[in-house]
Nucleic acid binder design. Structure first.
Length: 847
RNA sequence: GCGGACGUGGCGGAAUGGUAGACGCCGGGGACUUAAAAUCCCCUGAUCCUUGAUCGUGCGGGUUCGAGUCCCGCCGUCCGCACCA
């Protein structure tokens, strides 16, 4: 292909592909495990191969790419890999809808998307590419799963699970949102099934404690994980049922309020409620009512506290003559704590609502300021600090003291123990799907559940499968599940569940760093690369993926396979790419009809439809979505403007953690800048003479600032600096300094606009690839200005500025300031009380 | 309800407690051109009595010589979690 560049225009349609091929041929982005250089592992969250790269991917991968390319130029051995999170439901949906095989569909998508990523010029080490759907990946995952099983971190149990009736599979708690499946949106049902679990709760405390070491993670993500783990400490206590030997166990974080108890409440699913209901139709009805209740935020907000008096009583643990009624209540959750609570209405809002409704006693046991009366007025529970009152021997203690003492007393007397509860549940990983990692176990009638011997791994998915019937294709496959028991040799059946795809993404960053064929990874090689220095991805993975990956890392450390606890040293969550919407109201039904950006002619403040030239309404700038038709296709943009323009757009203007509004005008501006740089690079003159100290200074200041900005991921600021240097060079006259500045500018933009940079690098006569060129050294002396502009204030208001030599003594600055006409006019004859002088900054005259 | 983030021109956004609005976009004016595109130059927070001045970073206070920045109290927007005992 020949270049179609002109002195005025850079032609990406020929240059982009040429340089992409050159990088491939030089293999310049391959990471060397044995390099002696310092290392840097830059990772972006790998994509699901849906078929098309969307603009959010482009933003994510451009940021990582700039970082990786900069680090490489700065002398680091950089690992910057890419792969595919390739198992999951959409492939099976495609199989059902279009009759294609999930494997074929997925691999085609991967090929398409890989080509798209190459067209964007990302500096990726493709030799380390992994796809989780390939046996060389999921087979190693099976090996790790068996290791965790041996260590007791995998178990199987019969449990009520979240069943998605549309996808016909089990969902983890994390995948149920407002009672609906996260993917299908179907109302989730409870079913009893034998399921595989990973013991994430064993690491609850570690995962919580570990958050405090992650000081390069966003506060927001750490808080979200902390809330998700949901640690609370308190007392588990038994309330003895009157006239029986049985009791009801409750968990409370407020044992200090025990003297304020006025009832016990158990969940509708509590075993005691079920046994009582056997002979009580009214209670059966009540339990059914509780289950019908909605689970959305709005419904819970307004839901009335309902209770059913069982007629049973329990003894108060501190006074066996004090009896409390037992209710079944709709606000008690079976799957938290013990499924039973004691109600202390004065100091818990729900309990107060309940007590007022059912006219139960409300007794104050924590003083609210001076108010220590036993009778509690009003309908707002007091949950603040205070001293214990109306609590016998505990009176006068603080809440914390009372908690400690009553826990000690309960343990001593045998009716309670200190307990820590977590909201976090063990991770159910069984999925009744085909397109996932087969769980490597065999069910034998004689030997029970038997792990597949490691030498028989991988347990491969069968190729020919029927997708036309709902349910698990592996379960009804005619032959696949039938095997001999590895222990006794008798006929047995395979486990037909596959692993949640979040398991696949919980260790892929390890496989990138090391991928031997005979084991999941090499421990010593991992030690060279991990933890990931910079991880970049969307905030939507703040809990699930990032918590699971942390858990796997800790679990693998726990069983001695790796030597570090946290996988991602620094995490960055980037904002979304948004776009305005274009719509017209449909006269017939009043609903807006949306138009895609390609159908629109966009003016300065208005927009019209290309088809009829009539105006359309410009709507809010919102997240790109198919239903609002406000999506833009990266391929079209690359074809029109080239990869460098879209990359530059992704870095410009908005800070990377915030949303980036896409606009036609914006991408055109970026494209104009590409050509502007090209023209400027064309002015490089190796034979120029003379120097330009001011330009030299600007050049080195820009290099230092851009390096800092990129290291801080403040790409928008680096971009602004580059614009400034560009303008400064354009305004300068030819000199050695000017040519040096042009060469510097080229190196500065190389990580961001690599194709343009390579083309210009060759054009100015440099040999070799700029991708492999060394970053810029700066002269520290040049970073310091020798002249400074001083602000002169009177009473804090700017009145004048003066430009003076840097480092001028205070007295001289003061004299210069007072000599200013403007200052004298502002003083208007008033006496000067004092003068504040900040050297090289400002003078403030106080009158 | 709990937790977090944010609030600066027409827009995206800059600003170690020290000249608010860098840089980009939009808009306006001009140069070049037969013309257009491209390119280049200038202007672009508001108001006024326009050589200058006053006001101005969601609102109200405070600390300070000096506050977009720090403190207190509100208001608003967005996000996450939630009958979690």
């Amino acid at each position: 292909m020949t270049s179609a560049n002109t002195p005025d225009r850079f032609d990406p349609s020929s240059a982009d592909a040429r340089w992409q091929a050159a990088w491939d041929q030089a293999q310049c982005f391959r990471a060397d495990d044995n390099s002696a250089k310092p290392r840097s592992y830059v990772l972006e969250m790998f994509p699901y191969p849906s078929g098309r790269i969307h603009i959010g991917h482009v933003r994510n991968y451009t940021m990582g790419d700039v970082l990786a390319r900069t680090k490489r130029m700065q002398g680091f051995e950089v690992l910057h890999p890419m792969g595919w999170d390739a198992f999951g439901m959409p492939a099976e949906n495609a199989a059902m809808e279009k009759g294609v095989h999930p494997g074929g569909w997925t691999r085609d998508n991967i090929a398409n998307m890989k080509a798209q990523l190459k067209r964007l010029g990302f500096a990726l080490d493709w030799s380390r590419e992994v796809a989780t759907c390939e046996p060389d990946y999921y087979g190693q995952e099976q090996a790790l799963f068996l290791d965790l099983y041996e260590a007791g971190l995998v178990y199987r149990k019969e449990s009520a699970v979240n069943w998605d009736p549309v996808d016909m599979t089990v969902l983890a708690n994390e995948q149920v949102i407002d009672g609906r499946g996260w993917r299908s949106g179907a109302l989730v049902e409870k079913r009893k099934l034998s399921q595989w679990f990973l013991k994430i709760t064993q690491f609850a405390d570690e995962l919580l404690e570990g958050l405090s070491s992650l000081d390069k993670w966003p506060e927001k993500v750490r808080t979200m994980q902390e809330n998700w783990i949901g640690k609370s400490q308190g007392l588990r206590a038994t309330f003895k049922l009157v006239d029986t030997d049985n009791g009801i166990e409750v968990f409370t974080t407020r044992p200090d309020t025990l003297y304020g108890a006025s009832f016990l409440a158990i969940a509708a699913d509590h075993p005691l409620a079920h046994s009582l209901a056997a002979n009580a139709p009214e209670l059966q009805d009540f339990i059914a009512t509780c289950k019908r209740g909605g689970t959305t935020a709005a419904e819970l907000e307004t839901a009335e506290k309902l209770g059913f008096n069982t007629g049973l009583s329990v003894e108060h643990p501190l006074d066996s003559h004090w009896h409390l009624p037992v209710y079944v209540a709709n606000f008690v959750l079976m799957d938290y704590g013990t499924g039973a609570v004691f109600g202390c209405p004065a100091h818990d809002q729900r309990d107060l609502d309940f007590a007022r409704k059912y006219e139960l006693p409300v007794r104050r046991v924590v003083a609210d300021g001076d108010n220590d009366g036993e009778t509690f007025e009003g309908n707002e529970a007091y949950t603040g600090p205070g001293r214990l009152v109306n609590s016998g021997w505990m009176n006068g203690l603080t809440i914390e003291e009372a908690k400690a003492q009553i826990i000690a007393k309960s343990a001593h007397e045998g009716w309670g123990t200190a307990e820590t509860q977590y909201r976090l549940r063990d991770w159910g990983v069984s999925r009744q799907r085909y397109w996932g990692t087969p769980i490597p176990f065999i069910h034998c009638e004689l030997c029970g559940v038997v792990p597949v011997p490691k030498k028989q791994l991988p347990v491969m998915l069968p190729e020919y499968v029927d997708f036309q019937t709902p349910g698990n294709p592996l379960l009804r496959h005619p032959t696949w599940k039938h095997v001999d028991c590895p222990k006794c040799g008798k006929p047995a059946v395979r486990e037909t569940d596959t692993l949640d795809t979040f398991v696949d993404s919980s260790w892929y960053f390890l496989r990138f760093a090391s991928q031997p064929s005979d084991k999941p990874f090499d421990r010593d090689v991992l030690a060279k690369w991990l933890p990931v220095e910079q991880y970049i991805g969307g905030i939507e993975h703040a809990i699930l993926h990032l918590l699971y990956a942390r858990f796997w890392t800790r679990a693998l450390q726990h069983i001695g396979l790796i030597d570090f606890a946290e996988p991602f040293a620094s995490l960055f969550t980037q904002g979304m790419v948004t776009h305005e919407t274009y719509s017209r109201v449909d006269g017939s039904n009043g609903q807006p009809i949306y138009f895609s950006p390609d159908e629109i002619e966009r003016g300065g403040e208005s927009a019209s439809l290309k088809a009829d030239g009539a105006p359309v309404e410009i709507g809010r700038v919102i997240k790109m979505s198919k239903s609002k038709k406000n999506v833009v296709d990266p391929d079209n943009i690359i074809a029109t403007y080239g990869a460098d323009a879209i990359r530059w757009f992704m870095l410009s203007d908005s800070p990377p953690e915030r949303d980036l509004p896409w606009s036609e005008a914006g991408i055109e501006g970026c494209s104009r800048f590409v050509h502007r740089l090209w023209r400027l690079f064309g002015q490089f003159d190796a034979a120029a003479s003379g120097d330009d100290k001011a330009l030299d200074r600007k050049r080195d200041q820009t290099v230092a600032a851009v390096a800092d900005d990129i290291a801080a991921l403040s790409f928008n600021k680096a971009v602004a600096r580059i614009y400034e240097l560009t303008s400064a060079i354009e305004k300068s006259s030819p000199s050695v300094s000017r040519s040096a500045a042009i060469r510097t500018l080229l190196l500065l933009v190389a990580p961001m606009m690599p194709h343009l940079a390579e083309e210009a690098w060759a054009a100015i006569g440099e040999t070799g690839l700029i991708a492999q060129a060394a970053w810029l050294a700066v002269d520290p002396a040049l970073l310091v200005e020798d002249e400074v502009t001083i602000a002169i204030q009177v009473l804090g208001k700017l009145r004048d500025t003066i430009t003076v030599a840097k480092g001028l003594p205070k007295e001289e600055l003061e004299a210069l300031a007072l000599a200013s006409d403007k200052v004298q006019r502002a003083l208007d004859g008033k006496a000067v009380k004092k003068v504040i002088v900040v050297p090289d900054r400002l003078v403030n005259v106080v009158a």
